[in-house]
Design a protein around this nucleic acid. Structure first.
Lengths: 338, 338
DNA sequence: AGTATAAACCAAAACGTTTTGGATGTCAAC
DNA sequence: GTTGACATCCAAAACGTTTTGGTTTATACT
């Protein structure tokens, strides 16, 4: 069916070894032979059998990405962008990307185990880290290469890239407080996610600079979807003493809050101020355009991927820990409280 | 390092053949031996080397998915949901999913070529089909298995799943026309995409039932992002004789149009009616909730994947062509024109 | 002439499976 | 006691590479 090295070898009357070495650019092949082999290989339409190479080389040139899908309808623009960042970088560096989608839990861990045991990937990218992250503990315990996007409660033993959520929320807090808001509410990500408490802490720290605190009743925990933003935002706005500003911990929830506000006849950016986090492309064209914190997700995907591949190829062995300073993007979803 | 069949064979004093056959459940192994082998394999923590198996079996148990990323910031909730549908089904059926992200063009085609030549995948899922689809022509010319999500101008030679965009837009047209709108505008997908003209034709057919036609000046072509919906929606609304209803060909663009309308002080669902297409989860929680056409993207992902795997395993050889009847989801972004 | 060096090549082993085509032994039937 | 059927097992080949550890030949140096 398809052309093997053996076929080329027979055609040019050389050994398999010589053909292989010529193809791989070794210099113990005479220039003429090399030329001939390359030409013949091309003519015959040779291309190597990947699995044979991988079996022999004992590496898969593949990186694994297991996306945690929280709901059955996993609809998140954030992840498609991250995926593109990872995928393009992997392709540039000659690696395959093996993607799996699993909801958090035992099945997810089994998937990691299976991919490692079958030697199908050389390393993993772990996304959306949890405070106590079983995936990371497992990978650490097996000594398997990975790079995380996000930190954990105990993250000095592995490489990661993360945005500085504390700092980002501090910027938000300072901005909102600077706008003279005092009744400030917040919709947090699920508690078990690592960035949840960092963002809360940053928000509180920023407010503290203005001698403000976050009232208990103004804190809600969402699941990062627009739906939950809508529901929790609605609850907050229906409070007898309703907040004048609502800080959502991602853009999607912020959009939900905006809908809830508009539902109640409130004008966003007038009657109530709302902020997001992530700066997904949509947030520039919402109504009103959303004030948020920019996170260069595409680039982060590329960085994480490159760090992992470097680590696999053993160009790097020390830990790399990158913390990105996010930037506040001021648009029109907030105004000063009078 | 890791346990091989050979190691088990030595331990139980049987041949490699017998161990392999026991592990694979053949019945020419005595029950006691089989028991022993299975137990020993477990004890020793054996798991097969995937690449050795694939090399021998001459199949990759992997399906390829090359996502066409239009913009550098590829941010589309639709695709993450599709990916989850495909990924979960693939995992259920014991297949790996190899994902690549490439913008349409020569690089994209090379990626298909490379994956086929390296025998890295057993088949492809082709998404977001174009009228004249080079990817499909290429796969057809090489006789390589694939299933498409979407049709093309010439689609009687391959298997696909598609929603009936013609029918869906007809539903929209009938609904809008039934609401007594006459000045109806439309924002189409990029012309080269296969569903573009189908949706336009369906819209026109639906309107024709009410003796309405689409004015030339009311037709725009977007790129399916919220941004383009915002810009083109703005253009339409700034027309001297502005439309009273705007039909966007996907939800994301509809959101953009909604923002443009609100920007101009118009109340969506009052002063102007707007519809979408896809029914992504977000559309239920926009303001106002979006009237749209439902497309079961997650399920479609699963179907396409299953069809492909069946085809690869040769359980099916005849073409399978599935056309899904979509459903109109009426929410609050439209009202009757008075 | 003899010796070292370098250039060009190659046979065979290795990677870890599955499959082919038997071999061996036991038992029942004639 | 031969025959056939059956159960159990296995050596060796195959999948398509890369690598190891050479050999051979020509050239340069003493």
């Amino acid at each position: 069916m398809s052309v093997r090295i053996k076929d080329i070898a027979e055609r040019v009357n050389r050994s398999i070894t010589t053909v292989s070495r010529a193809l791989n650019g070794y210099d113990d092949v005479s220039p003429e032979t090399k030329q001939l082999i390359l030409k013949t290989a091309k003519e015959m339409g040779y291309s190597p059998n990947t699995f044979a190479q991988r079996l022999q080389k004992q590496q898969s040139d593949t990186i694994g990405l297991i996306l945690p899908t929280f709901s059955p309808r996993f609809s998140d623009p954030y992840f498609s962008e991250l995926l593109a960042g990872i995928g393009n970088k992997a392709a540039d560096l000659g690696f395959d990307l093996l993607v799996s989608t699993r909801s958090p839990g035992p099945e997810e861990n089994e998937t990691y185990e299976k991919l490692i045991d079958g030697r199908r990937v050389d390393g993993f990218i772990v996304v959306r880290t949890r405070k106590q992250d079983q995936r990371i503990n497992y990978l650490l315990s097996r000594g398997f290469p990975f790079v995380a996007f996000g930190r954990t409660d105990d993250c000095d033993r592995f490489s990661y890239v993360d945005e500085d959520g504390y700092f980002g929320m501090q910027l938000i807090a300072e901005y909102i407080a600077g706008l003279k808001h005092e009744k400030i509410a917040c919709i947090l990500p699920p508690q078990d996610l690592a960035f949840s408490e960092k963002r809360l802490a940053g928000l509180q720290a920023g407010l503290a600079e203005f001698d403000l605190t976050l009232r208990e009743e103004y804190i809600r925990e969402g699941d990062l979807t627009q739906k939950s933003g809508y529901q929790l935002g609605g609850e907050l706005l229906d409070l007898p003493d309703r907040p004048t500003a609502i800080v959502a911990c991602n853009d999607l929830m912020a959009f939900g809050v905006m809908s809830a506000a508009q539902d109640r006849g409130l004008v966003v950016g007038e009657d109530v101020s709302i902020t997001g986090f992530d700066d997904i492309p949509m947030s520039e064209y919402s109504y009103p355009p959303l004030t948020t914190v920019h996170q260069p997700v595409y680039q982060i995907g590329g960085m994480v991927c490159e760090m992992l591949i470097r680590q696999i190829c053993e160009e790097i062995q020390d830990l790399q820990q990158v913390l990105l300073k996010p930037e506040l993007i001021i648009r029109q979803s907030c105004r000063s409280y009078t």
